[in-house]
Design a protein around this nucleic acid. Structure first.
Lengths: 215, 215, 215, 215
DNA sequence: AATGAATGAGTATTCATTCAT
DNA sequence: TATGAATGAATACTCATTCAT
């Protein structure tokens, strides 16, 4: 508050040595995200991290390990964020209200730079890393679907929604939200897209319409 | 007729020179599809194409040009296939019947090795090639959506479908079909998926439900 | 005379097959002259000769042989030209007149594209070909010097010139003429040079001054 | 003093990093000098310099840049040497004495390995590098001629030399000295050449004879 | 004889990885 | 710990040479 000493922030060296790995992972996230595993250069990662090339090897045995760890940690961070969101939902709300609430949350979440990049990497490069794939599948996909399918199941039970397999409905949800998140990230390719809030409305409208009992 | 030399097939030299570019493009499709632009090795492409490394350079000035041309030609082939499908639909059928018909067609089309690889490349590497992106956007995405939105518009007119923006509905269609196509290609990650025919039913059911007028 | 058939000149093929080697050697002369032995490309030589790449190999076993033969034949042509000039000199003229006459002849000869290129190749690449070097030394250098030293010797005998070793004087002659020929070919580097005729006068004046008896 | 580790010299790593560029340039000088720009191999340059191939790229962006820089630096070194020589001349000596003095100096200088190689490169390859050519022309040629022409002008003024354009005379001087330097470097081709000291005498005798007033 | 597509050894250049400081 | 110069294996690209036609 008062007169902090001429900031150690100015020099990268020796600033908070425990932060080094994270610094590197952050830089790696951007470079790998932009150019892929093969295309990214350790030199650039080091430069972006404000660290010498050799320093990376103090924390990660090689490029591939750095990539893996970067994906892992980003994944974990993403999961944590998503998790935090889950508990915001009031358990007494209607299923539709919950879907709306969750829909808005995921819509914000999925359009995040971090998540979009992760998604690109997953579809692009993760086939070479089956274990990371499995991790992604279990921790992210399955977990997300359970959340949604839980809500749907309750809605079906309550008669709010028509009889539909909650897992199937959860899959449709993923499909709509993830696809649109990707598209808004490449608006040049999809000029007919409205603004983000409007898209969310369109998805919710479409999705809920399909779930409502057809009288 | 009698006495034709059998050996002609033994050597690549001079055997069917017009086939060479396509041969190379096919090999490139697989290697680039597996490892991406940076990861693929010209050497492997040559080996797979059954030609010498230098031969590639007889037809393509460099690796990037080969990549571009491979994407372009695959795209064009994909468009042609999709195009052919369009005209199969009988114009007097109900909109729902058309959607079902088209839905089955695209479901088969999108799960094609060629299309899946293309999709992976588009999401993974095409950001580095804005012109290819534009080509993809105009020729593939826009074209496909027009086809679907035309059907929807007719359904809305006829009162078969509820009032919905046909372009929006077309987007929802893309989202469902493309996402599921990607997923069935990675079944390890999505163990809850049923068999392909079942998934198509699930999608059609979900999609049409949302379009039907809510009495 | 009348109505010659649509000129065979138009197509390179089949036009005077015995001329092929010379055609190739001419093209080689230019390409090697411009880019040196290593820098020249057989492809370009073939193109310039209006011949397919493979054709070169019908007449020359490889690139180096082509280079050697090109140098040899150019050398021989150059020698023949120089030789022809020798006999023009009237044997009864004064030594000074002969020097002037020869000086003008060599001045024209040395500034020839062919000779200049030859000279460049000799200084640049010929160290790798000792036998060509020897050939050059004996046939060109020695021969030229003998011609000059013969004239000088007669001039000394007659008292027209001071007592000087005719071979030494011949060397000085070479030095002046060859250096200036190189320089006028690179006038950008030697902006103080006058026009060609003037340079010849300067050289003759300087040269003869040194040979005249100092009373 | 006592006990200094001897081993430091054993490895190239980290041994005197500032010396690396010069080390490489020296090696480049020899390889380019022997085989020309196209003929020299980076691999050989590295080997001769005692470094790994990659190390070259730490200091020079590519082969051509290495070539340019090698020529430039050699040129500069040559100019420095020549410059140093200029000031040795005592200003009160006769013009003839100065010419003799300078003549001996340049004779030694031009026969230097460094200068001979430079000359070969200039005539052989420098046409592809107009800017280097210009540099050479201005810094080396023009500079050298001014030095000589200054002496001649003084000699003419004093009546020591006949009336001759000093720049022309300086050119004749270059022609004699440079040609002979080249020749003694290829004695096989010029078997009639005497030993070096004798040649110098021959040149001085010939040159001064031409400058002396013809009574 | 002539062609030019095909070959593959050769070379410049890049970049992950090491290591002396 | 941290550095960044040095390494050398890997790879894109070139071009002399071959050979089926």
């Amino acid at each position: 508050m008062t007169d902090q000493p001429v900031s150690t922030e100015l020099t990268t060296r020796r600033r908070d040595p425990e932060a080094r790995p994270q610094q590197i992972l952050d830089a790696a996230f951007h470079e790998f995200g932009d150019r892929g595993l093969a295309g990214a250069r350790l030199d650039d990662i080091a430069k972006r991290a404000g660290v010498a090339k050799g320093t990376i090897y103090l924390y990660f045995p090689n490029k591939e390990a750095l990539f893996r760890e970067m994906v892992r940690s980003t994944l974990i961070a993403a999961i944590a964020t998503a998790e935090a969101r889950r508990d915001e939902a009031g358990p007494n709300d209607s299923a539709e209200a919950l879907i709306r609430q969750l829909g808005a949350g995921w819509w914000a979440f999925l359009r995040t730079e971090r998540v979009l990049t992760l998604h690109r990497l997953v579809t692009g490069e993760l086939r070479q890393f089956p274990d990371l794939m499995a991790f992604y599948a279990e921790e992210v996909i399955a977990r997300g679907r359970q959340l949604v399918s839980g809500i749907i199941a309750r809605g079906v039970q309550r008669g709010e929604f028509r009889a539909i397999d909650p897992l199937v409905a959860a899959r449709m949800y993923s499909a709509l939200w993830m696809s649109h998140a990707t598209w808004v990230n490449n608006r040049e390719l999809h000029p007919s897209l409205g603004h983000d809030a409007q898209i969310l409305d369109e998805m919710l409208d479409f999705y809920l319409h399909s779930l409502r009992p057809s009288v």
